[in-house]
């Protein structure tokens, strides 16, 4: 029979073996969240200590990496976000419209050789600045999906929100990020100026009478989401036969909006 001390000591090694492989990923995301190395290190350390403390609560067979990220997200919200981040107001319809023009006009250049013809002089710092310019909630989903490779469902677990919310934030976050990069590219003369407005067909009429979720008030300190109507227009048809998404393990939450 092992003593309690020995068991606990062994648990420490066990936890370390399980958790340390994710330290680079956690640090990377922590750095993008806090925007400086000192706070990122503290955040990762606090995450590890909390995760260790609650290690016996972790359910075997579930995603350990996602569990660690969830603890880090909660720690960040408790410690940092309230004091450091202020909510952004986003006029998404404006972003959408000018983005459509820019992407439409420049798509042929972008696929020809985006790296050498358009973005060769764009610094890594510009790309990081573009990412940092995203409202926190949008930045998080883009980081978790596109840099860390989590699935929609895992991101929904980490962020405690429906999969549909993850998808709509991803849609907007990616679009805002691309749009910001294209703005930089235009500002520094890598690409041409404004094109003719792309034809934008509103789907508003088609969505009339569609149900709206009413508890859409943002939490305190949360980025202000674009209005429901806009969201409904964007994701119109998501619950139609015509536009059925087969997102894994989803019941009727497709594109459900917070």
């Amino acid at each position: 029979m092992k003593s309690a001390e020995v068991q606990e000591h062994e648990q420490g090694w066990d936890f370390e073996r399980a958790a340390m492989p994710y330290v680079d990923s956690l640090y990377n995301t922590a750095y993008r969240m806090t925007r400086n190395s000192e706070d990122a290190e503290d955040l990762v350390q606090e995450t590890y200590l909390k995760a260790y403390k609650y290690y016996d609560k972790f359910e075997e067979g579930t995603n350990f990496k996602a569990w660690l990220f969830k603890i880090m997200k909660n720690t960040f919200i408790n410690n940092y976000r309230k004091k450091k981040l202020t909510p952004h107001k986003i006029d998404f319809s404006e972003i959408e419209e000018s983005y459509e023009r820019v992407i439409q006009k420049n798509a042929p250049d972008l696929i020809r050789d985006p790296e050498s013809e358009i973005f060769q002089d764009m610094m890594d710092a510009d790309v990081k600045r573009a990412l940092d310019s995203l409202p926190h909630d949008y930045k998080m989903v883009v980081l978790l999906a596109d840099i860390e490779g989590f699935s929609y469902k895992e991101i929904a677990e980490i962020l405690d929100c429906p999969v549909g919310t993850v998808m709509s934030r991803l849609y907007r976050g990616r679009k805002m990020l691309e749009r910001t990069l294209l703005d930089y590219a235009r500002k520094y003369g890598y690409i041409r100026g404004e094109a003719e407005p792309a034809k934008m067909r509103s789907r508003k009429d088609e969505t009339k009478g569609r149900k709206k979720k009413d508890d859409a008030k943002p939490e305190e300190g949360e980025a202000v989401e674009p209005d429901d109507n806009e969201e409904e227009v964007l994701f119109a048809g998501a619950d139609d036969e015509e536009f059925e998404f087969e997102v894994e393990d989803e019941e009727d939450e497709q594109f459900e909006i917070e």
């Binding site: 330290v23 990923s25 640090y27 990377n28 290190e41 790296e115 790309v127 990081k128």
Partner: peptide, 12 residues
């Protein structure tokens, strides 16, 4: 392009 430019920073 974005993924490449935002390549992960490893923990010190």
């Amino acid at each position: 392009f974005i993924r490449k430019r935002l390549s992960p920073i490893g923990a010190p």
